[in-house]
Lab assay of single mutants.
Amino acid sequence: MPVRRGHVAPQNTFLDTIIRKFEGQSRKFIIANARVENCAVIYCNDGFCELCGYSRAEVMQRPCTCDFLHGPRTQRRAAAQIAQALLGAEERKVEIAFYRKDGSCFLCLVDVVPVKNEDGAVIMFILNFEVVMEKDMVGSPAHDTNHRGPPTSWLAPGRAKTFRLKLPALLALTARESSVRSGGAGGAGAPGAVVVDVDLTPAAPSSESLALDEVTAMDNHVAGLGPAEERRALVGPGSPPRSAPGQLPSPRAHSLNPDASGSSCSLARTRSRESCASVRRASSADDIEAMRAGVLPPPPRHASTGAMHPLRSGLLNSTSDSDLVRYRTISKIPQITLNFVDLKGDPFLASPTSDREIIAPKIKERTHNVTEKVTQVLSLGADVLPEYKLQAPRIHRWTILHYSPFKAVWDWLILLLVIYTAVFTPYSAAFLLKETEEGPPATECGYACQPLAVVDLIVDIMFIVDILINFRTTYVNANEEVVSHPGRIAVHYFKGWFLIDMVAAIPFDLLI
């Protein structure tokens, strides 16, 4: 008679799926529990143990900040960024110097990925580790590398530091407007667009060049630039800015003055950032001319202004700041037409079709709590990747769950009947059967004279019903998954307890 339990259901295979997918890609990662103190490590794979030199037993239950890997060259700011990422709910990448158990130093890129439950609360953290440099290539500990984003994938490793954006290309926007319009339909740009040429040739750093990471940081200074100062900065030398009595002219307006920039070969870094931020506020060169004239017309309804409409929906549905990093990277690809469009465009503009998908598509409701890094690593669709929660398995109709209350009560009843059979069957065979043979035949009273025979008949009927119930009862397979398919249940029961239950259900007393 089957006594099969499996009270692990309803099970959740999400954690096993993450481990299996990460292991298949030869990654070095740990999984931490966000619900406990210090976000203790609950799993670390073999790749991480080989990377740091510690065994799994030495890593388990330690804080996922990996303070046991810190050393003299470990930056405090990087460690603080990892700790801050564990307090938030967004994906974050941090470069930090770690030390192995043998004392060797290596520069590592740590990717902190939160995993949320159905309520939107962070319950786990996945920390992925990628070695960037070994100890002989690690720089000085005073050099802070965590304020910069990861290198873009479309640049060669040897040319990542030679990417320079020439400031004269930004200063000569109005001069290039006529050349853009003359391109017409034969050019790649839309009317009114501004073409910015980027020099990728390796050259020595000069005062006129600005690194790509500095251009990325310009967006942080746009908020500090007032509207009046932006307007004066875009007017140009024809209309000098008016300053109040006793007030000095704005240095932001002076930063885009061609006369002032041409007199000296070098520009201050602050002026460069502010000038680029001011130019980015204009949607095209037409807006710059309109600002000089004193009238700013409404933005025209053409394809170039609607190019950012799908980007707005993608940004609203993005799951991490990696989408913004990807957008900034692609927006700086050289030799393309940049349409400086305000994100607050007309909502009635139709979304044009684009061959290049900048932001990841909208994630469906079932995966809105899973970050983009987890979705990318697992390579699963929205119909396959579940949320991290207890999910009731989908069972067929008329199927009994093996952990249901009805099955528990039924098993206790069958257990009592088995005990009765084990006690009274030998007793009936030894004593009652002998008395029946010696006594007179009682054929007239039937079952009324033999109450134990009636009980034995009921017990046999219950055993037959138990066999039928076992054909529709779920079970737990070797992978700790609840199986509810009727065919698989029948095959599993035939290979197991079916023969024993059938022999126990045969009414031998009635056959004798």
Rank of each mutant, 00 (worst) to 15 (best):
S178K: 08
P299L: 03
R301S: 15
D102K: 01
T65E: 07
R312T: 14
K166M: 05
K28E: 01
L311T: 14
I336S: 15
K93M: 09
R281H: 11
T65W: 09
F29V: 02
I123R: 11
R73D: 08
D213V: 05
Y327P: 14
S250L: 01
R242W: 15
E118T: 13
C105P: 15
P297C: 07
W154T: 11
F22Y: 14
A169S: 12
V112M: 06
A277C: 14
K93D: 09
S250C: 15
P386F: 05
R100S: 04
L87M: 10
D102M: 01
R20G: 10
C108L: 01
I126Y: 14
P310K: 14
V215T: 09
T17N: 15
R312A: 13
E37C: 05
L86C: 14
Q335H: 13
D287E: 14
C105W: 15
A277R: 06
V325N: 09
F129E: 01
A290I: 06
A34C: 06
M137G: 15
N369R: 08
P297R: 12
A188R: 10
Q84S: 13
S263D: 07
T152S: 09
E58P: 01
K93R: 13
L173M: 13
T65C: 10
A9W: 14
P205I: 06
G120A: 12
A193E: 10
V115L: 13
R269W: 07
C49V: 14
S26A: 14
S351C: 13
P114F: 01
A260G: 12
S331E: 09
L109T: 08
S263E: 13
K332A: 07
H254N: 07
R20Q: 12
G238F: 04
P352L: 13
S182K: 09
A190K: 08
T270G: 14
L87K: 12
M308Y: 12
A203S: 06
S209C: 01
P334G: 08
R242P: 11
G192E: 06
P386K: 03
E274D: 15
E230R: 08
G192S: 05
R281I: 03
L311R: 14
N45D: 01
P237G: 13
M291D: 11
P202V: 01
S304R: 07
I358G: 05
A80Q: 10
A204I: 01
A282N: 14
S283G: 09
I126L: 11
